[in-house]
């Protein structure tokens, strides 16, 4: 039997976590969740998943800080990473610029809230395309 792909979802909103988790589970992911960046980072480092979903706006360490740490870490650098954002979708956040400023690679995909399951899964597939473990 083919081993399920794994994903870590980090969002301070329990309900949003649960939502994303359900969508991913429906698409064959084993999921783990964390309500804050620090716990999530521990989960990832403890057992690197195949996919990481991070909310940008969180209390304590923010999603962007976590992005920076994960993309600088050799173990986690290549894991597909999706940023979930609820802020100002019309502001066209330039992730390339942010990544250049942080001196890291940009996130593999960005999904805006409200979360649409189809759009989310399209982003998941596109970011995992050609990666080890991809379908």
């Amino acid at each position: 039997m083919e081993k399920n792909r794994t994903a870590v979802v980090i969002d301070d909103e329990l309900d949003v976590c649960r939502y994303i988790e359900s969508i991913l589970q429906d698409h064959g992911f084993d999921t783990r969740t964390a309500l804050e960046a620090r716990t999530g980072e521990d989960l990832i480092l403890h057992s690197p998943p195949d996919l990481i979903c991070i909310d940008i706006m969180m209390p304590g360490r923010s999603g962007v800080q976590l992005l920076s740490r994960l993309k600088k870490n050799d173990t986690t650098r290549d894991i597909p990473l999706i940023m979930i954002t609820g802020i100002k979708e019309k502001m066209n956040i330039d992730w390339t610029e942010i990544a250049r400023g942080l001196k890291v690679r940009r996130p593999d995909a960005v999904v805006e809230k409200p979360i649409d399951p189809v759009r989310l899964m399209r982003a998941v597939e596109s970011s995992m395309c050609g990666r080890p473990g991809a379908e």
Partner: peptide, 24 residues
């Protein structure tokens, strides 16, 4: 406004998530 809209989006996601989980 931005933080309220963010909050509303989160609530909306919560509602959508609830509905999604309910349907699931």
């Amino acid at each position: 406004v931005s933080s309220i809209s963010h909050s509303i989006k989160n609530i909306l996601d919560g509602l959508r998530g609830g509905a999604y989980v309910y349907k699931r």
